[in-house]
């Protein structure tokens, strides 16, 4: 009696075996990767667009603190707000970790200003996309980057929902990712606020524990319901960010992407990605085993035949 195994059944068995092995071997680590709510003592910044006057002090302070190259225009030149490149307002690049853009909102007498920099996600997509672990989310709340291990694949630039990591294309010998690091090295790790926050004259940037910043944001909205949109951008966006925003205009009118998911970017690929290493490590062995088992009789026959030939 010969039992034939169809190709489909064969593959199904292989997949089932892999899933079983994954569940058995990986149950502990997959549990741990379930959800990360962020470090409880992590710091954050609440950016209040209704307070910002577009003075660009934060840009100047950042340039000085991070030792960035000289800007094309002085930081007290407000003509930069009219700059449009490739149909877009100014964005961060290798020479500037933060920019302030101006938005004319219909029905509002004065423009609203929005500061752009790394939002320091609770569960950063750049970090999870990096296969050499060049990124770290520190307990203080910063997402920092280690250029020594970076291989320059730039996956983080694709992964970031806010288009923040930029590449230092200008340097052939020392190319690296350039982005805001929350002034981690020089300030945050010592409990000091980042340079931009300290420079802000209007306290449009308020620094404190992330949980306190959410409280402060809620309080401001509650006290001035007519002034603010009832939403703190960054409280839940992409699983929460350390930098959060209050606005008097709908967020999509002032340059925010309101279509980003409310859970970490990682969640969209986590289930698939957790199977990849198992497929890569188990399938080859498993199928080689199947192959050897299936061809065992043929091989034995061949050897016997060979022996016969030698004898005769």
């Amino acid at each position: 009696m010969k039992k034939t195994v169809s190709r489909r059944a064969f593959l199904k068995g292989g997949l089932a075996g892999t899933v079983a092995a994954t569940t058995l071997l990986n149950s502990k680590s997959s549990e741990a990767a379930g959800s990360f709510e962020g470090y409880p003592e992590g710091m954050g910044v609440l950016v209040d667009l209704t307070r910002c006057v577009g003075c660009r002090s934060c840009e100047a302070a950042c340039n000085l603190e991070q030792g960035l190259p000289e800007p094309a225009k002085p930081f007290d030149d407000y003509s930069v707000f009219d700059e449009i490149k490739h149909g877009e307002k100014r964005r961060t690049d290798e020479t500037r970790y933060t920019v302030v853009n101006s938005y004319d909102v219909p029905g509002m007498e004065h423009p609203l200003f929005r500061k752009v920099q790394c939002n320091h996600c609770q569960e950063p997509a750049c970090l999870t996309s990096c296969f050499v672990n060049a990124y770290t989310k520190t307990p203080e709340g910063a997402v920092i980057y280690n250029s020594k291990v970076c291989v320059g694949c730039r996956t983080c630039m694709v992964a970031c929902p806010f288009y923040i990591p930029t590449f230092k294309y200008s340097s052939a010998f020392d190319p690296k990712i350039m982005k805001c690091i929350f002034c981690y090295d020089t300030r945050l790790k010592d409990g000091l606020p980042p340079a931009c926050v300290e420079a802000c004259p209007q306290e449009a940037l308020t620094f404190g524990k992330r949980s306190d910043m959410i409280e402060a944001g809620r309080q401001r909205i509650k006290m001035n319901p007519d002034k603010y949109v009832d939403h703190i951008y960054g409280e839940h966006e992409v699983g929460g960010t350390a930098w959060m925003y209050l606005s008097s205009a709908p967020f999509d009118k002032v340059g925010f992407d309101t279509h980003v998911p409310k859970e970490p970017i990682l969640n969209s690929v986590k289930d698939f990605l957790s199977i990849v290493p198992m497929v890569l490590t188990i399938w080859p062995g498993l199928f080689v085993g199947f192959h050897l088992l299936a061809t065992r009789k043929d091989a034995a026959k061949k050897i016997e035949e060979e022996k016969k030939e030698v004898k005769s």
């Binding site: 000085l64 800007p71 002085p74 007290d76």
Partner: peptide
Amino acid sequence: MFKTGDYAPDPQDHNNGGH
């Protein structure tokens, strides 16, 4: 700090028009 006045950038240095 604001790279202005006596410390203003020279427009010639940034006139390459590229990225």
